[in-house]
Each structure stands twice: as structure tokens, then as C-alpha cells.
Design a protein around this nucleic acid. Structure first.
Lengths: 196, 196
DNA sequence: CCTACCGATCGGTAGG
DNA sequence: CCTACCGATCGGTAGG
């Protein structure tokens, strides 16, 4: 990698970072390329030396995050890990993503509607598959009597939405630390699942 | 009320209804007045005989819903109702609102960011007060040993976000009926709160 | 409720 | 990376 390429890469990363922050604050549609350019410190036209289009920015932010989620789930696919341990790891992973990559996570969860075809269908099917894999882990745990017989569909929905709800916590002046929040969430969400 | 006023009123209601549906589908910023006009069946300019501006539509949708939430909470403020009964009523109320008034609920929860001042501050403070009232009910229940000693802040956040997560369920071809979903949610969310 | 139209702003391109 | 600029579309108004 030449020096020029390296510089270009890091400027692109800066654009993606600022874009995620602005998309989260104002939403994808309400953020203009001129707003974004100002935040990056260049003219709007100059953005196009680093990225192809506004849609491409959204796609990169969202599919990078989706990839992280899928990879984490792949890493968990070991036979010696119990189902309840897997669920705990998934809760912790999502809580940490929500806290540490707040802008990117928020954009994935809220702005995927603004994806255009074929990216939209791609994302929706990736997400469907992800949810199904989580449900399979829960079903497996129920079959092995590790987990209380609860509708996997409802449990997964509750877990993923609760994480999404951390947005409130993130916005408010934080009464509770990130570490405490994570423990509370694990306790609350996992506590309701474990078989006695 | 004259006949003319009555007709105007119902056309305005139609506009608000269609607007909520489109804001939910595409987001407030991505919905144009021309899109909305087409959905209503008139020209864009004609919308302005019924409403003042695009922002006003958003405000009406959101503050009507906020009012419903506040009124429901006021109705619950009776001394002979236990805290756990109050929490159950709140969960059921939100689940039913999410299911029966899906578009309006979704717009309130997702598109409030697009409110402009002074409406934005108004909404944010109303929501803050609402959450504080819910927390107070939980704190009261904990003090009376009706509810397990859990951080009220986290519990309220979990309840409200889980309801929001019903969006997934609503979008998907429904494997579970509304009635079942409500019972599952009450069981799951209330079950984790009750003192033994 | 429509036609006609306003100024502003949008995403993006040409050319250097 | 900038200046200059494109066609398209935006929310909204005038006038009837």
C-alpha cells in the first residue's frame, strides 16, 4: 500500500465515521452531502473522490456492522459451549456494540429502510437468517433443558429490542455506567431464560 | 358543526392517517408532500387547505399519541390498584397501541427527532416525565415488596423497548396472533418483576 | 381543489 | 481538492 492510498483510505474512514454520526442524529434522508462535507472539512464535491454516492456510504456502514454480527455468531459455533453461554455471549456482544459503536449500530438498526435494491433485499435476508440462527440456539437450549420453555421468537425479539432501547440510556446523562448497564441487562434478560 | 366543517375535518383525518403510514414506511424526511398528496388523491397544493405545513402533520400525529399515553397513565392513578397491576396495565396498553395504532405509534417512537423547536423540547420533556412516572410506580412496588428489587430505570427501558421491538413481529408474516403476543409479552416482562 | 409557479436545496458531474 | 454548475425535486404560495 502506497502512502497516497493510505491517506485516501483514512479520509474515507473519516467520512464514514462522520456520516454515521450525522445519520444517527438527523437520519439518513435529512442529512445532506453538504452537511457531511462541512463536518469532514472539505467541499461537497470533494467527497466524491473518496466515495461513489450517498447510498454507498449507508451501505458500507450497515454491511460492515452486519458482517461483525455474523462473524461473532460464527465464532460462537463450537460444540463445547452451552446454549445458555451462547445466549449470554450474544447479549454481551450486542450491548457492547451498542455502547462502543453507537453511531454505526444505530444506523444499522434505524436507517436500513433507506437502502435501495439490491442492497435492501440483501440486508433483510441477512437479518432474517441471523434471527433464525439465534432462534435455533434457543430452541436447542430448550430441548436440552438448559432454557425454560419460552417462545424463541418472542425471547429473541425481546433481547434485540432491549439492546436497541439502550439508545435512551446513551442519550440521557448516564446515571449508570456502561459496565453496570451490561450486567443489569444480562441479569434481566438471561435470568428470565435459565431453567431452574 | 356545519356540514362543510365536518367534511373538512374528515379529509384532514385522512391526510393524517396516510401521512402516518408513509412516515412509517419511508421516514418523515424521505416522504414528500407530493407523495402524500398522491396517496390522499389530490394535488400537493391542495393539502394546504387542510393542514398548515409538513411539520404540523408530524406534530399532530406525535402529540395525539403522547396525549393518549399520558391520559392512560392518569386513569391508572388510583390508590386501590396495586403496583404490579399498574405495570401490567401499562404493558398491555403499550402492546395494544403498538398493534392497533401501528403507524402512529411507530412515528412517535421513530420520527420525533424531526420535530422542530419548540415542539421538540416539549415532546422530550413530556417523554422524560412519562418515564419518571413509570419509574416511580416501580420504585413504589419495590418499597411495598410487590416487585423484586431491580433497577427501575433498566426495567422501564426494557419494557418500552420490547414493545418497540414488536415492529419486527408486525412486519413479518405473523406466526403468532396479536392476543398470544400480548400474553407472551406480559408473562415475559412481568414474570421477571414479581416478588416471590 | 386546481394550475402555475417561487426560491431553496438536493445529489452529483465537469473540468481543472 | 476546488469552482462552477447541472437537472430534479423540495415545501410552500398566489390566484382563481
Amino acid at each position: 500500500m502506497t502512502f497516497t492510498e493510505k491517506k485516501k483510505l483514512s479520509k474515507k474512514e473519516l467520512i464514514l465515521e462522520r456520516a454515521a454520526a450525522m445519520f444517527r442524529e438527523k437520519g439518513f434522508a435529512a442529512t445532506s452531502m453538504r452537511d457531511l462535507a462541512e463536518s469532514v472539512g472539505i467541499e461537497a464535491a470533494s467527497l466524491y473522490n473518496h466515495i461513489h454516492s450517498k447510498s454507498q456510504i449507508l451501505e458500507e456502514i450497515i454491511f460492515r456492522m452486519a458482517k461483525k454480527c455474523n462473524e461473532h455468531l460464527n465464532d460462537l459455533d463450537k460444540p463445547n459451549v452451552s446454549c445458555i453461554e451462547k445466549v449470554e455471549a450474544i447479549i454481551r456482544f450486542h450491548v457492547q456494540m451498542m455502547i462502543n459503536r453507537f453511531d454505526d449500530y444505530h444506523v444499522m438498526v434505524n436507517d436500513w429502510i433507506h437502502l435501495t435494491e439490491p442492497s435492501l433485499s440483501d440486508f433483510v435476508s441477512q437479518r432474517r437468517e441471523y434471527v433464525q440462527r439465534l432462534e435455533a440456539i434457543l430452541s436447542d437450549g430448550i430441548a436440552k433443558n438448559e432454557i425454560r420453555p419460552i417462545a424463541p421468537y418472542v425471547a429473541i425479539l425481546t433481547i434485540l429490542s432491549s439492546v436497541r432501547g439502550l439508545e435512551f440510556w446513551h442519550r440521557s446523562r448516564k446515571q449508570i455506567s456502561a459496565r453496570e448497564m451490561e450486567e443489569h441487562m444480562v441479569q434481566h434478560l438471561l435470568g428470565g431464560l435459565k431453567a431452574k
